[in-house]
Design a protein around this nucleic acid. Structure first.
Lengths: 225, 225
DNA sequence: CAACTGCCAACTGTCGACAGTTAACAACAT
DNA sequence: ATGTTGTTAACTGTCGACAGTTGGCAGTTG
């Protein structure tokens, strides 16, 4: 929405703070202290406050009057609601991609899929980097800047909720298959099928996150004893 | 996203400024002067800047480094892109509404439709208030807070682009029919049809806005002579 | 007369300090 | 011992002032 704000301190603070939160360096539930963080970033509280407000509007931080900002904690309902939104946006993107994609888009999508599979079979791991790259390539093929922007924000929140969770190989395998199926549908210019595959894919990812969240909670409860 | 911020001056400033922009009191293209506006609102520049940043993240204002904020002007491409997003969100909402609606939801939707038709036939006019009420009732029936929140933001931007445009009766008549068809599909628990009707409805509204925009531009060009 | 250059005013970006509120702690009363 | 209340420290909310940048204007030069 406001991408090239990299000149002002507030703009830089947005990027730095976003990274601090998304990488889990500032864990979920942590209260953000303005004076301390301002000192740590080497800026004043004014620009920092603007940055905090900005990230709050993105859902990366929660604002409570007179009690500052904190990193949101994920409840199962939050995950479900967020994935409803993500499904709405990315299914539409998949439809548009199936309609508007060029040959170059298909080549790129195939390339990302192939590299994902190579990396997975080699290191037994499907890095989030390639997952994001795939969804980004799909968004580019959809050629809808507004939808793309919203998806970016939603993905950001998904990453935020996922920090501290790890995913299991069977799910990763299924995701690879989903991606391949998506590319096939998009290459075949079949919007309906692309949307359906995307819906199925996201439903899988969502349920996987829910189980991951449940086990993480159980783990935390056991350590609390 | 941050609804009950009505305690701080920044929160109030957000509401006041939003209203000033959406009602067209601050016309499109106008540059916002921070010191002047701060004085007019009776607050300091700090809270006002936070409010401006917040509205910029909502798309109500555009920020340019070192040149302040201004109200965005609508190009046809902007309208099309925005309606792609709106279509993605509201079609999903229509699907969910067809699945989750209760009897009370249907009663409310029917009531809004009936009042819209009464008002239209009486005063030859379909007030935006009732149009928004219908879409709001549909969102409530969908029971998806995340989607509802995003739709609210998008509708806000649509209102912003529409300020200064007036709509013609034939379009209003078609919209009334669309709304009725939507309620029918939702009452029949038919998500596919609800989504299709919504898509058609929004396509109609979009094209109507595009023609309205074109005539407004032509009008402006003629007065500039 | 046109183009260039230096200056100037206005505005944004930033900072440090003050005021108001909240929450935790401690002292007291029951 | 427990509930209540007064106190206090820390933090957020807000303000006014300073510094840096931008765009326009006048003066100058070819």
């Amino acid at each position: 929405m406001t991408p090239p704000l990299h000149l002002s301190l507030a703009g830089q603070a947005v990027d730095v703070l976003r990274e601090l939160v998304l990488t889990g360096e500032i864990p979920s539930g942590t209260r953000v202290n303005e004076v301390e963080l301002a000192g740590r970033l080497g800026i004043s509280r004014g620009p920092l406050r603007e940055a905090i407000r900005h990230l709050a509007s993105e859902g990366v931080l929660i604002l409570v009057p007179h009690r500052g900002a904190h990193v949101p904690t994920a409840t199962p309902d939050d995950v479900r609601a967020l994935f409803e939104l993500r499904t709405a946006l990315e299914c539409a993107a998949a439809e548009l991609a199936a309609t508007r994609r060029t040959e170059a888009d298909i080549v790129l999508l195939r390339e990302v899929c192939a590299e994902s599979r190579r990396t997975y079979q080699a290191g037994e791991r499907f890095p989030h980097r390639l997952d994001l790259a795939f969804h980004q390539a799909l968004l580019d093929a959809a050629r809808s800047p507004q939808i793309a922007g919203q998806v970016r924000l939603v993905q950001q929140r998904v990453v935020l909720l996922r920090s501290g969770l790890r995913d299991d190989p069977p799910h990763q395998h299924a995701s690879l298959d989903d991606h391949d199926a998506l590319v096939t549908a998009i290459a075949a210019a079949d919007p309906v099928r692309a949307s359906e595959v995307m819906r199925r894919h996201l439903a899988r990812v969502c349920s996987q996150m829910l189980t991951g969240l449940a086990t993480a909670e159980a783990l935390e409860a056991s350590t609390a004893d």
